[in-house]
Simulated scan of single mutants.
Amino acid sequence: MRHTTVDDLAAVVCAARAGDEQAWARLVEAYAPRLRLIARRFRIPPDQVGDLLQATWLQLFNGIDRLQCPEAVGSWLAVTMRRFCLHAVAGRDRECPVPVLDDWLTQPGDAPDSDLLRAEQAASVRRALAQLPERQRRLLWQMATDPDAHYTELSARLGMPIGAIGPTRARALGRLRRLLLDDERATLRV
């Protein structure tokens, strides 16, 4: 469903709602790779990914009648999968099959690779930010370093019309998201 229009997607979701097995198959075919990628981002062990996928699809199956925007099914699935992944990761932190003797192991967030993961994420964000146009990069920097700043302040600091701040921010975040996804896909291919 890569080159599917919003209307086509809504029709597929409505058909799935009505019990059309081919519509369900199309949804699974279209979104399962994206959901697996989300699980990989959370470093979910391969033996658990299938369970999380099944739980996500079951959640959609049980709630498809309540889905108000059928064309947003992809976003809904992604959010649901992320929630299941977060829950799985949190559960992993609580499980301890053997008694932990060292204090450093019991500290939340002090996993041996947590610093490495944070450093990799920060480097990825820096690389993506460096690829943004100067105007977008400066706006995101101002908004990140002073999140309480009003648009009038940002306008004065950046020499940007107030009406351009929201659209520029949206374009910058969209481009940043795409760059980060591209970077992550490239990392996964290596």
Score class of each variant (00 low, 15 high):
19 G>H: 00
141 W>V: 14
182 D>H: 05
50 G>E: 07
12 V>H: 00
178 R>C: 10
42 F>P: 01
113 D>F: 13
71 E>M: 04
159 G>H: 06
98 V>D: 11
128 A>F: 01
135 R>A: 14
114 S>H: 12
45 P>N: 08
34 R>W: 02
1 M>G: 01
125 V>Y: 14
77 L>F: 06
60 L>M: 14
87 H>N: 09
52 L>Y: 01
177 R>A: 12
129 L>C: 07
103 D>W: 09
183 D>I: 01
85 C>E: 02
3 H>D: 03
159 G>T: 05
43 R>H: 09
16 A>D: 00
76 W>I: 12
62 N>T: 05
42 F>M: 04
35 L>M: 07
90 A>C: 10
16 A>S: 03
115 D>G: 15
75 S>W: 08
38 I>H: 06
18 A>N: 08
18 A>T: 05
141 W>P: 03
101 L>E: 10
117 L>G: 11
29 E>S: 13
28 V>K: 00
184 E>G: 13
33 P>Q: 14
157 R>D: 01
35 L>W: 10
180 L>G: 11
24 W>I: 12
179 L>K: 01
122 A>C: 09
136 Q>S: 10
28 V>Y: 04
83 R>I: 01
86 L>C: 06
189 R>G: 09
104 W>N: 13
57 W>M: 06
151 Y>M: 14
187 T>L: 03
2 R>A: 04
91 G>N: 08
160 M>Y: 10
146 D>Q: 15
71 E>T: 12
70 P>M: 05
58 L>Q: 13
75 S>N: 05
113 D>G: 11
21 E>T: 12
185 R>I: 07
113 D>N: 13
15 A>V: 00
125 V>L: 15
164 A>I: 07
118 R>V: 07
174 G>F: 06
57 W>H: 01
153 E>W: 14
11 A>Q: 12
69 C>K: 15
97 P>H: 08
173 L>V: 09
115 D>C: 15
124 S>M: 14
32 A>D: 05
101 L>S: 13
40 R>E: 09
189 R>P: 02
117 L>M: 12
33 P>C: 14
72 A>C: 07
23 A>Y: 02
68 Q>V: 07
188 L>A: 04
70 P>S: 07
8 D>N: 07
72 A>M: 15
151 Y>K: 13
156 A>M: 11
59 Q>N: 12
134 E>Y: 11
128 A>Q: 05
14 C>P: 01
145 T>K: 10
86 L>Y: 03
114 S>M: 13
81 M>S: 05
29 E>C: 08
36 R>G: 08
10 A>I: 00
72 A>W: 10
190 V>L: 03
23 A>L: 00
39 A>S: 13
72 A>N: 06
148 D>E: 13
157 R>F: 05
130 A>T: 03
133 P>T: 02
49 V>D: 09
152 T>Q: 14
44 I>T: 08
30 A>K: 07
92 R>S: 02
96 C>L: 06
30 A>G: 05
13 V>P: 01
139 L>W: 12
1 M>W: 00
177 R>K: 03
32 A>C: 08
115 D>S: 14
54 Q>F: 12
165 I>V: 09
95 E>Q: 11
6 V>A: 15
60 L>R: 00
25 A>M: 00
